[in-house]
């Protein structure tokens, strides 16, 4: 029972991280109609910025707080230099150009930070377990990730649903020509949304960094998962991204935790240990294929 609750919390934590990454992606996708493969690179830069800043200041929290504006600057820079020229192009051009951005980003990181991975050390108060109930210890850092992730999700919900900027963003998602005609500065709005996406991606990257190792290409595989999430949820839908991220986080965590034991009852130990993560990854893609066959524009997607 304790194990199950712990794994469920892990699932929520992974789901929230994935949501932060997917939220930026789905906003950019829904509003600018841009397929941004380089979103995973922003996630990677977030982690590297945090690694450098926390080594420099000696504090993980200060490092993280400095990494976010750095990621915002980087996002705005990329938008102005390259991405802005892509809005009027088709999806194929987006895929190609942002694929090029990935190549540049990975080598740039190798140039600046070197080929070796980095670990970000946590402060003492975050690296010990806390007791959620008397007999349920849980790593404090993972719990903090859940809290921050949930807070940012709520903030995003408020920003998009309750503010004037959010109104522009929603209006932009449904008809970008019209909001331009109504006098909204579309160019600035797009830059803002791209920058916001970059900050969210960087936040996900730097929060994942102490759990996984900071390494080159760390964003490449998780990016595909983020795409899976926004496609399942329906492109442009924050709500869809949230639900899909939670489901994907659960499947991945619970699958990895419980499948090996299940498989060991009829496979050899080695085979079960290889097959289990592969099967839980497969289930995610199977889910996506199933959702798309059933609803070709995702769970909450309106447009095709």
């Amino acid at each position: 029972m304790t194990l199950l609750i712990e794994q469920l919390l892990n699932g929520i934590q992974l789901g929230l991280l994935m949501f932060l990454l997917a939220a930026g992606l789905t906003l950019v996708f829904g509003i600018m109609d841009l397929v941004n493969l380089a979103h995973g690179s922003l996630y990677m830069f977030g982690a590297y910025f945090c690694a450098s800043f926390s080594a420099w200041t000696g504090s993980f929290v200060v490092g993280a707080l400095l990494a976010l504006p750095a990621a915002l600057l980087l996002g705005v820079l990329v938008e102005v230099v390259v991405v802005r020229k892509l809005y009027r192009r088709d999806h194929l051009d987006h895929v190609l150009a942002t694929f090029g951005l990935i190549l540049i980003a990975n080598d740039l990181v190798r140039l600046v930070w070197g080929p070796d991975g980095r670990r970000i050390p946590l402060p003492a108060w975050l690296s010990q377990p806390i007791r959620l109930t008397p007999d349920l210890p849980y790593p404090a850092y993972r719990f903090a990730v859940i809290l921050v992730g949930a807070a940012v999700a709520l903030l995003l919900y408020w920003l998009v649903g309750r503010t004037r900027t959010g109104m522009w963003i929603r209006a932009g998602a449904s008809n970008r020509t019209m909001i331009g005609a109504l006098g909204v500065n579309v160019e600035a709005l797009f830059t803002l949304v791209f920058g916001l996406g970059a900050v969210l991606a960087a936040l996900a990257g730097l929060m994942a960094a102490p759990i996984v190792t900071v390494s080159i290409g760390m964003g490449d595989n998780i990016l595909i998962l983020a795409f899976v999430i926004i496609v399942i949820g329906g492109i442009g839908s924050i709500k869809g991204a949230f639900i899909a991220a939670m489901v994907v986080g659960m499947i991945d965590t619970v699958g990895r935790a419980f499948l090996p034991d299940l498989l060991k009852s009829f496979l050899s130990v080695a085979a079960a240990n290889t097959a289990a993560p592969a099967i839980s990854s497969m289930m995610i893609y199977l889910l996506m294929a199933g959702v798309l066959v059933w609803r070709p524009t995702g769970l909450f997607g309106a447009r095709s």
């Binding site: 895929v95 795409f227 899976v228 496609v231 996506m288 070709p296 095709s304």
Partner: peptide, 14 residues
């Protein structure tokens, strides 16, 4: 059965 970017993503998923 899907179009546009959903087609890109479903072929990727398979």
């Amino acid at each position: 059965r899907t179009r546009g970017v959903y087609f890109i993503m479903i072929t990727l998923a398979f």
